[in-house]
């Protein structure tokens, strides 16, 4: 158990360091935001036009 705690702790520290780096560089933050915007633009483009009808029409029979 002690060993596990140690591993958890080390990994936690690692993760924290990585997270800290993001706000340290506003350029990286801007890049992430731009990427997300591009992704959302793309989703707006490919998402089925009439969401309500699209979701309503998707009916499956139970399987297995």
């Amino acid at each position: 158990m002690a060993e596990r705690e140690l591993k958890k702790k080390q990994a936690t520290e690692r993760t924290d360091e990585e997270v800290d780096e993001v706000p340290a560089s506003s350029a990286a933050g801007e890049k992430l935001k731009a990427e997300l915007d591009d992704l959302l633009d793309e989703i707006d483009e490919v998402l089925e036009d009439n969401a309500e009808e699209f979701v309503r029409n998707y009916v499956q029979k139970g399987g297995e």
Binding site: I43, L47, E48, A51
Partner: peptide, 25 residues
């Protein structure tokens, strides 16, 4: 509860490369 949320959910799993949301991630 907006149908667009359910639509995003469903289309995440669409296997057509032109429509799949998963493939865009």
């Amino acid at each position: 509860d907006d149908p667009r949320m359910a639509a995003v959910d469903l289309q995440y799993h669409d296997l057509r490369p032109s429509r799949s949301l998963f493939a865009r991630l």
